[in-house]
Computed example of a mutant assay.
Amino acid sequence: MRVRRWAADAALGVIFAVVLAFWAVRIADSWGGGYWRFDCAAGAVVCAIALARRFDPARTAVAGLAVAATAVLAARFADLPSEPGPAMALGLAVLVGTAVKTLPVRTACAVAGGGLAVAAGSLVTAHTLAAGVPSVTLMNVLAWAAAVVAGLCPRLLDARRRAVAEGVRRAERLRLARELHDVVAHHVTGIVLQAQAARLVSRKSPEKAGDALADIEAAGSDALAAMRRVVGLLRDPDEPAETTMPGRPGELGELVERFEAGGRTVRLRLPDEEETAAWPPEVAATVYRVVQESLTNISRHAPQARSVTVEVERDRETLTVEVADDSPQCPSRHHQRGGYGLSGYGLIGMRERVEALGGTLRAGPRPGSGWSVLATLPVPVSPPRPRPARERAR
């Protein structure tokens, strides 16, 4: 990178030298004498400052503008050729473009405004005002405009890249936060409930305490395995998300079985396995997480619930997931369950998952008694699979 910069500056220096020599010859031909010396000296100073712009873009820009403004005033009162000349205009364009590209917004705007003032100041040194806009002024304004555009375009592109990168990082953080919440809330809640049950069992039936402790150990092992999957996402970002997403066929049944071990009855209704296997991975994972978080919420906030219904149905391009319980209503329940999980992030996480797929989520008390979580997800219709020839013959 450094070699490229030095090469670019060397090429720019050659261009400066060629423009200076060209304009000195033009002035000598048209004005005669030594009039070219002032323009050549002032232009060389600004060009040299432009070549040093990488060390301090702000100070070099201010220095270049100051030299150019001084040259304009000197040309006006000493009756010299119009300033800024082409070489000085080119040097100022390099300084202004670099400032607009790299400096903070206010400083960049100040430098750009100073460049425009110097370009417009060339009017006071023009010798052909009666013929319209002087060519020197037009050249300086065009050089200034090109410099602003050249500096502004990469600045805007860089800002857009940063915004996109920040959006991707934020989405990734939210995804990992949801995964961590779902894993921790579900498994830790199960461990806590089983530990509470073990305390009761140890008092009433000490001989069954070993089984309760074995259940706690199994729940802890499941929690560790789930945490390892999430940590794997952090350590290996190139791993396909489908390999760590839950919701594969059969996992909902295992989830319900673990919940039923707490003493509640669950009525599970699912589409056939062939249809669930055709769901996109992100849809299957969202269905799993909605059911998981709803069951965790029941375990935490509805200990009186004895029966739970989990229904997953598909109607053309719409997939509906509903988890409902039969717990009695109580005044404080809506406040307790409104948060859904750790620190109130459960419901937020579920809604983010569902809305990210273009769906909707509704959670609240059912008429009469119980609580319901209803999620609706759009699912594209998959083309029908061709039947074998033998089956078509039937």
Rank of each mutant, 00 (worst) to 15 (best):
C47T: 10
E391S: 09
A119I: 12
N297C: 08
L123M: 07
A223P: 05
A126C: 15
R106W: 09
L92K: 01
S135P: 02
R2A: 14
E242L: 07
D29F: 02
V45Y: 08
H301S: 06
V14P: 03
R155D: 03
M88G: 06
A143K: 01
W279K: 00
V287W: 03
R53E: 10
R394Q: 11
G132W: 05
L213C: 11
Y35I: 00
A8D: 14
P57S: 02
E293W: 05
E282I: 01
A197G: 08
M227W: 11
V67S: 02
R353Y: 07
E217K: 09
P206E: 13
G358K: 04
S327L: 02
S372D: 09
D56N: 04
A150P: 02
V149H: 09
V287P: 05
I348C: 04
G33N: 14
A223H: 11
R300F: 06
P240W: 04
T243F: 08
V230M: 03
A171W: 12
R333Q: 11
W23E: 12
D222L: 07
Y288S: 00
L193V: 10
K101G: 13
Y345I: 10
P388D: 03
P240G: 07
W6G: 15
L138G: 10
T70F: 15
E313W: 03
G339M: 02
V19N: 01
K204R: 15
V124G: 06
G167T: 11
G210N: 06
Y288H: 14
G33C: 04
R106F: 09
A61F: 07
L357F: 07
A218P: 00
R162K: 05
F16Y: 08
R169P: 00
A117I: 12
E172C: 00
S332F: 12
A284E: 10
E355R: 09
Q196Y: 13
L252E: 04
V3D: 10
R54G: 06
A278R: 11
D272N: 09
A226S: 12
G338R: 10
R228E: 15
A61M: 01
T376I: 05
A363V: 13
A50N: 12
R385C: 08
M88F: 08
V201Y: 08
V291L: 01
F77M: 09
F38T: 05
E313L: 04
S202L: 11
R169K: 13
P380K: 11
M139G: 15
L176R: 11
D29M: 10
P249T: 06
T128M: 06
R161K: 13
L319Y: 04
A165E: 15
S372A: 13
D272A: 10
V100Y: 01
A130L: 12
